[in-house]
Each structure stands twice: as C-alpha cells, then as structure tokens.
C-alpha cells in the first residue's frame, strides 16, 4: 500500500549551501511517490549507530528519480553524511510520513512558512502549489522564511514559485524579528498556512492562525527511532484521543509529521 522501503541511494551531488548546511541530491526508486512534507530516514554507515536520521525532502526531480535533502550538520551522523561524494551510496528509508494537504490551498491565498532548517520541505510544497491547475490552484502563493541572520539559504529559490518575505533575528535582512513579525509588517495575504520550523515558531503560527480564523498545517519534529509508526517513540500531544493510540498521543512519523494545528495540544 504505502511503498515504503529501505534501499541504497546513489549520491548525485553534494555541496555546502551555507554555514553547516548541506545540499544533497540522491537517486531513489520512490521519488515519484513523494508528497511534499514527507521525509526519509538516512542511516550512517558508522557501525556504532543504529537509528535512521529523519531528514525532510526538499525537492523532487521526478524525471531523474531523485530527491534533494537540505540538512544541517548537528551530530556525528549528519557529519558523516556531509562527507559523501557523487557516486557514493547511502542507505535510506522512505518515503515516510503524510506530507502537506495541498488540496486545502485550492482557491485560497496560501502561505508557506519556514524557520531555519524547517525551510527545506516548503520548497517542494511551494513548487507543487504553483503547478496546481484549475480549481485546485491557490489564488496566491507567498513564502515567509525566518533565519538567524543574513546567512540565508534557499530563499532565492522560492522566488520561482512564490512572493518571498524574509525575517532575520538580527535584522540584517528583511524584517527584524520572526516570521510572524514579517507577516504582520508586510501584511502578507493569507487564508491557509503550511509551516515547518522550531516549536516556538509553530506555537506562534498556531496562535496567529487562530486569531485570524484561518487554517494552519504544521510539520513537527521529535527524536525518532523506527520512523514507521511501530515504536511509539516520537509522539505529540493531541486535543482528542486519536484513532491509533486511543490516548491523546499521535505518532509524528506516521500520523504526521504534518498536523492540523487545531488538532494539536501545543
């Protein structure tokens, strides 16, 4: 049914995108099945490691059967990934998770919002939204990105698909402050939100969406083990008892990572 697999993935290219941020293209058999907002688990070869590293899918090349991962080096596993060269093979598990419900943007003014290393999955999201046809097409697509400083990444690529706004914590580029500050200052037209980023940002977006009476779909992150919904390691609190767990815990790796903000107890 779901077509999940663990397989070898050939490295097509890898470059440094920004300080500590890498840009990797991998050839995988499941590229055509990927929904924006889904992720893969990448396994370090280091035998002392056990668990896959969850990394969101930034872009898909359906012709070339390839996916693009833009990730930050945060530990020994990702440090190993940064060493891979074109022609090398990595082990990946995917595609994982549910992805963004793009149909919710039909006829609406959609805004994709990314914070830091939460920006990458929104690129394919914006791209697919811009390709939607007829009644499925959004009325408008905007992208709001938050970074620490002017050392930004990927923001230039969103201009192909969306009206782009940037916020930086130090004010060195765009609006000084966070993504909500940018939304308010720039008066970004918004009927529906797709967002990924750190928890405080997502909480802020949920509050903003509630205040405006609009829908927000948030992609969450948590320490994971199996990645396929079996171990119950990566749960988040939900308002109602959920279908799978029968307690107020949903599995981020399979019921998410994308949730309707209204369903979450944040």
């Amino acid at each position: 049914m779901s077509g999940k697999m663990k397989c070898e993935a050939k490295v097509l290219s890898q470059e440094l995108l920004s300080e500590g941020i890498y840009d990797l293209w991998l050839q995988v058999p499941f590229a055509k099945d990927v929904v924006p907002g889904q992720f893969v688990g990448v396994f370090p070869l280091n035998k002392a490691t056990l668990l896959p590293r969850p990394i969101s899918i930034c872009e898909v090349d359906t012709n070339g059967s390839a996916i693009r991962l833009v990730y930050r080096v945060v530990g020994s596993g990702t440090a190993e990934f940064a060493l891979y060269q074109p022609g090398d093979y990595m082990m990946v598990l995917g595609p994982l998770g549910n992805g963004f419900p793009l149909d919710k943007a039909a006829g609406k003014r959609a805004v994709v919002i990314g914070g830091g290393i939460g920006v990458p999955p929104l690129l394919e999201t914006a791209k697919r939204l811009s390709k939607a046809q007829g009644s499925k097409a959004p009325a408008k697509i905007s992208a709001v990105m938050g970074y620490r400083n002017s050392d930004t990444f990927l923001d230039d690529e969103f201009t192909n698909f969306a009206e782009v706004y940037v916020a930086t914590e130090d004010g060195s580029l765009g609006t000084k402050g966070n993504v909500i500050d940018a939304m308010k200052e720039q008066d970004v037209p918004c009927d529906v939100i797709f967002a990924c980023g750190p928890m405080p940002m997502l909480r802020g977006i949920k509050a903003y969406a509630q205040e405006k009476g609009i829908k927000a779909y948030l992609s969450l992150e948590e320490r994971m083990a199996c990645g396929v919904g079996a171990c119950l390691g990566c749960v988040c609190k939900t308002k109602e008892v959920d279908e799978h767990s029968h307690v107020k815990n949903a599995r981020i790796c399979t019921d998410g990572p994308v949730f309707d903000a209204d369903d979450l107890d944040m």
């Binding site: 668990l51 390691g233 749960v235 815990n249």
Partner: peptide
C-alpha cells in the same frame, strides 16, 4: 486500560544501541 506513556523525548541513540 489505555496508557499514555511517558513525555518526549522518549528515545535516544547511544554507542551501539539506544
């Protein structure tokens, strides 16, 4: 009866295991 389990983080990798 249903059990909620513990708060997250619930898992961590350690050398050669978890």
């Amino acid at each position: 009866i249903p059990w909620e389990g513990n708060p997250v983080p619930r898992v961590a990798e350690v050398y050669g295991g978890m």
